[in-house]
């Protein structure tokens, strides 16, 4: 336990002391702010800030690969993988700590967006109170979504020692998953089992449920399973050094 904690702490501090994650945080907040103020400028009354979240699966598709690209690839390229993996730690601890560290940083990226809630409350006075339910489930969905993206990013990073290559790979996986859910031919002409599978595998429909204020075991299972699956692949890819 103390090992997993030490690994995670180092991971997180690597994010805190590098410039790139903060640049990404800046862009993240800029983009969410853009969607938030766009919504505020509409004529109707707002009780949530759903557009911010609706754009999230798209925004994170660019941001998360850039956040995770170094996680394993850099250890490989500067050989620290050799000291890391010859310490008495399990491969799964290494991968899990990378996920936990990145996820914690992602949470710190999300925290400032709570300001939008405060703004909403302030603008609505006592008449239009923000609807806490859908906002909270949206945040929960954002955590699941980010967790999945990070697992995919770490998996991609574990495959190569080239950080940009790993970012591109993660982006490719994410955009593939996103598109199978929205491609029209998948919706109409394809056989129903294929359509169902595509819709199940794609993240956006599951995520959309959270934005509607619903927490369904079906969607939670989707995120948890797929996140675990990609982390499992990352562990295997770390182990694969043994067969080369």
């Amino acid at each position: 336990m103390s090992r997993l904690f030490a690994l995670t702490k180092r991971e997180l501090s690597a994010y805190f002391f590098a410039p790139v994650p903060w640049v990404l945080t800046f862009f993240f907040l800029l983009l969410t702010w853009y969607f938030f103020q766009w919504e505020m400028s509409q004529a109707y009354v707002q009780v949530t800030y759903a557009p911010v979240f609706m754009a999230l699966d798209f925004i994170l598709m660019f941001l998360v690969p850039l956040l995770t690209m170094n996680s394993v690839a850099e250890e490989r390229s500067r050989n620290t993988l050799e000291t890391l993996l010859t310490a008495p730690v399990h491969d799964w601890q290494v991968i899990l700590s990378k996920w936990l560290g990145t996820f914690s940083f992602y949470v710190t990226m999300l925290v400032p967006t709570l300001v939008y809630w405060a703004i909403l409350a302030y603008l609505g006075y006592d008449i239009h109170k923000p609807d806490a339910g859908p906002i909270l489930t949206a945040y929960l969905g954002a955590l699941f979504l980010g967790g999945l993206y990070i697992a995919i990013g770490i998996f991609a990073s574990s495959l190569t020692e080239n950080a940009l290559m790993s970012a591109f790979l993660a982006f490719f996986i994410l955009i593939t998953m996103l598109s199978i859910g929205v491609l029209p031919f998948m919706r109409e002409s394809a056989p129903s089992w294929m359509r169902d599978t595509a819709e199940y595998l794609s993240q956006n429909l599951h995520f959309a449920e959270f934005l509607k204020g619903r927490i369904d075991a079906y969607d939670v299972t989707y995120f948890v399973t797929l996140t675990a699956f990609f982390l499992f692949l990352a562990v295997r890819s770390l182990e694969s050094r043994k067969w080369r």
Binding site: R10, A14, R78, N79, T80, L81, E82, T83, T86, A87, P88
Partner: peptide
């Protein structure tokens, strides 16, 4: 790994 101390060839460190 618990019983061994290992110094790799290139002395990799977190710079």
């Amino acid at each position: 790994r618990e019983a061994t101390g290992y110094l790799p060839e290139s002395t990799p460190l977190y710079s």
